[in-house]
């Protein structure tokens, strides 16, 4: 079994989306805390978060939590009254829940962005539409190509003594000239690329895709497991077994059997990416230590 980030892109996407969905939809505090922990653990295991990021997310967490009591004055436990508007404990707690919901998705999607490199995303897009994947891959390739070409155009203009960036107006004119050259060049270059593609038989047969990622049995297992583990939570949310209300007073945390099953399965689902990743890292270090 490989680390989580080395799994097939489809497995990574399904697993992370399954884990990100319940905390976005449900306001159940148990689910929210579980999701927050899972997302944070995955970031930490992958060393995907800098101290600055963690600090700013803590700030964002508090900031978002404060928005709700400003706008919502429902709830019966009044803590203080500002401008004839009651600030209630329930509204503050709801604010914390909403900000946990936003933060857990931010954490999970940060890992998602780090794991889903462009080749992985292309593989995913290619499954749905090879044509869009082709468009995406050519655009992705053009970005660095154009940046490099802009540098060459700039250097050439400097070499010819055309660039005199001594005043803002002159700099603006210089940038406009570079851009103009760039656009003409990139459009022409695009046509050449297209003709070259056509000469090699683009559009003649069915489009296939080079498979960089092999779909192994373990990937299928990850997908199946993710879907199965989401099921109890989904059922719990649909049937209202997981419902938790903040207004007018906090309801008790639902603890029925279906709710407990949902907590357990969602807990496993949230921990799965971090656990698989950790397993991969430990195995890699172990193998390296034997060399």
């Amino acid at each position: 079994m490989r680390a989580f980030s080395d799994c097939h892109p489809a497995a990574v996407a399904v697993c992370l989306l399954c884990a990100a969905l319940p905390p976005m939809v449900s306001m159940n505090p148990v689910l929210l805390l579980t999701a927050l922990t899972g997302g944070l653990l995955l970031l930490l295991v992958r060393r995907g978060a800098t101290g600055a990021f963690l600090l700013s997310s803590a700030g964002l967490f508090l900031l978002l939590a404060m928005i709700n009591p400003i706008f919502s004055h429902k709830g019966e436990t009044v803590l203080l009254v500002i401008n004839d508007r009651p600030i209630t404990a329930e509204a503050i707690l709801y604010g914390f829940a909403a900000s946990a919901s936003v933060l857990s998705a931010l954490f999970l999607f940060r890992s998602f962005t780090q794991i889903m490199t462009s080749d992985r995303l292309l593989c995913l897009t290619g499954m749905l539409s090879p044509k869009t994947a082709l468009l995406l891959s050519s655009a992705l390739r053009f970005v660095p190509l154009f940046s490099a070409q802009a540098g060459r155009v700039r250097a050439a203009r400097r070499g010819m003594g055309l660039a005199r960036p001594d005043s803002p107006a002159a700099r603006f004119r210089e940038n406009t000239a570079v851009l103009s050259t760039m656009v003409t060049w990139s459009l022409e270059n695009g046509i050449v690329t297209a003709d070259s593609m056509a000469a090699r038989g683009y559009g003649v047969g069915k489009r296939t895709q080079a498979g960089l990622f092999r779909f192994r049995r373990a990937d299928g297992a990850v997908i199946l497991l993710s879907l199965l583990l989401t099921l109890p939570t989904l059922v719990g949310m649909m049937s209202g077994q997981l419902a938790y209300s903040y207004y007018p007073a906090l309801s008790g945390i639902p603890l029925s059997l279906p709710a407990a099953a949902a907590y357990l399965s969602f807990g496993l689902l949230s921990l799965m990416p971090a656990a698989l990743e950790l397993r991969g890292i430990v195995k890699w270090n172990f193998l390296q230590s034997r060399i």
Binding site: S138, A139, F142, V143, V183, L187, I191
Partner: peptide
């Protein structure tokens, strides 16, 4: 997805495709 499936069905010339990719890259930059 609906848009993508519609696009997939159509026949688009390679020159047109690449021009769209060029414009996309320019706006990404």
């Amino acid at each position: 997805l609906l848009f993508v499936t519609g696009f997939e069905k159509k026949k688009t010339g390679s020159r047109r495709m690449v021009l769209v990719a060029v414009m996309t890259a320019l706006s990404v930059i």
